[in-house]
Every structure is written in structure tokens, then in C-alpha cells.
């Protein structure tokens, strides 16, 4: 599954920012449908531009942050597969892989205690 050119893993990570985006979107829609204070070109304009600008800024920043992290991960993987025979990178790789190891590690930890 690819959306905006992200892998599934990254997309899952990015969902955390989809929630505030969704909340802002909800309010944009709600205020567009229900406007108990009426519409006024200046204030309604400001009202929507504030929410829409926050939405856009957050979306853009989330996109670029996801891009930077995913590109770095990809470069890391390529690096690891290319120089596999080299012992030094293997050592470095141990420190660097974050997510997968974390889950494995925690499972291991759980056993002796149980």
C-alpha cells in the first residue's frame, strides 16, 4: 500500500498527526455548515483561514518529516545490505534499528519475569 509515496510502516506512524488534522477538518466542516453567529466577510474569513492554514502547515510539515525519516531509513537499509560482510556496520546496525528490535527486545524481557 502506498499513499503519498509512503510505505505502510511510515503511514502507520503518521496516523498520529492525522488525528489533529481530522479534528481541525471536523471543525472546519462544522463551522461551514452551522454558523450561529452568521457570516461576516472579515471575521469568517479570518476564522476559516486560521483553521485552514493550521491544517495545511501541519500536513506539509508532517509530509516532509515523514519523507526525511523514511529516506534516512531507506538509506540505512541499503547501506546495511550492501556492506553486510563487513563486521563494523553490523555492529552499528544493532544500535540503529529501532522499531523492530524494540518489540523483540520487550518480548524477551517479558519472559523471565512471567
Amino acid at each position: 500500500m502506498e499513499l503519498f509515496g509512503f510505505e505502510k510502516e511510515t503511514l502507520l506512524d503518521l496516523t498520529v498527526n492525522v488525528i489533529p488534522l481530522g479534528i481541525i477538518l471536523f471543525f472546519i466542516a462544522a463551522f461551514a455548515v452551522v454558523s450561529p453567529f452568521g457570516l461576516d466577510p472579515v471575521f469568517s474569513g479570518l476564522q476559516f483561514s486560521l483553521m485552514i492554514s493550521m491544517f495545511l502547515l501541519l500536513a506539509v510539515l508532517t509530509y516532509y518529516a515523514g519523507r526525511a525519516v523514511e529516506d534516512a531509513e531507506r538509506a540505512e537499509e541499503e547501506h546495511a545490505t550492501l556492506d553486510d560482510p563487513d563486521g563494523a556496520t553490523e555492529l552499528a546496525d544493532d544500535d540503529e534499528s529501532t522499531e523492530d528490535d524494540a518489540e523483540l527486545g520487550s518480548d524477551d524481557e517479558g519472559l523471565p519475569e512471567a
Partner: peptide, 20 residues
Amino acid sequence: GRKLFGFKFVVYSTLAIGVL
């Protein structure tokens, strides 16, 4: 004794707080 759960969630939500 465990790595931070959802490390990237924390990273992205930090950025979200920054913008909002």
C-alpha cells in the same frame, strides 16, 4: 527496560505541537 513505545509517534506529535 524497554525502548520507547512508538518512538516515531512521539517525534511526529512533537512536530505537530510545534506547528499548532
